[in-house]
Amino acid sequence: MITIGERINGMFRDVKNAIKDKNASVIQEIAKKQTEAGATYLDINVGTAAADQLDAMRWLVEVTQEAVKTPLALDSQKLEVIKAGLEVVKNEVMINSAQGEPEALDEYMPLAKEHNAALICLAMNKAGVPQNVDTRIEIAATIVEKAIEHGMDMEKIFIDPIILPVNVDQKQPAYMLEVFSQVKLLSDPPPHITVGLSNFSQGTKEKSLLNRTMLIMAIAAGLDTALMDVLDKDLMDTAICAEMILNKQIYSDSFLKAAR
């Protein structure tokens, strides 16, 4: 699966301090570890604490790509912060993320095309995160329609139906699985489906187990990418195992190794 390493995020104290002190080695170490763990993309999120978010984004992108060639996922709700990252990014890139409003998509999709970037589109609109299956699918359909309109390669579109913490609303995980299977039917080839997996276990005591279990169920329902803790080896092994069971990889006794 396509994994997006979540760890370079100003919400984590070490990253927050590194941004403040311009301590490149902390960021570069995390970048290398996540790359070694098999991350396809590395998420870059300045968090909320940075005094100058644009400057912090540029700095994070620059120091990260000094250490690794892994494609980066520029993560911000603010377009100008994303654009600051795009100014300095050298390798393949992902934009994380655009909201599923037509106006927002009309702004983000041409930008993604211009930079040959992958684009995560959130299945949410001005009214917020939908609480049911149908609204999520409607928004996902709008995203697919807009992608076709803008001539985007569906390989570059990542739809994120937004997973909520399990302890917030226990009806939601089952809804999500339904959404995953339906989104896969929206086009051929279908868009990618992604989630911010760690959000699912936020505020719980069994984070790793909950993430693993949700990931297996999600992969079975059609999810093929996630923003996640790639340094959790059990979680990564679980993802490889689930995809092998679905015949996405030919089994061999060393299948865990072969997938890395």
Binding site: I250, Y251, S252, D253, S254, K257, A258
Partner: peptide, 11 residues
Amino acid sequence: DINIGKQVNIL
């Protein structure tokens, strides 16, 4: 045996 075939390549 495709599984063994792949395994030998890994080995």
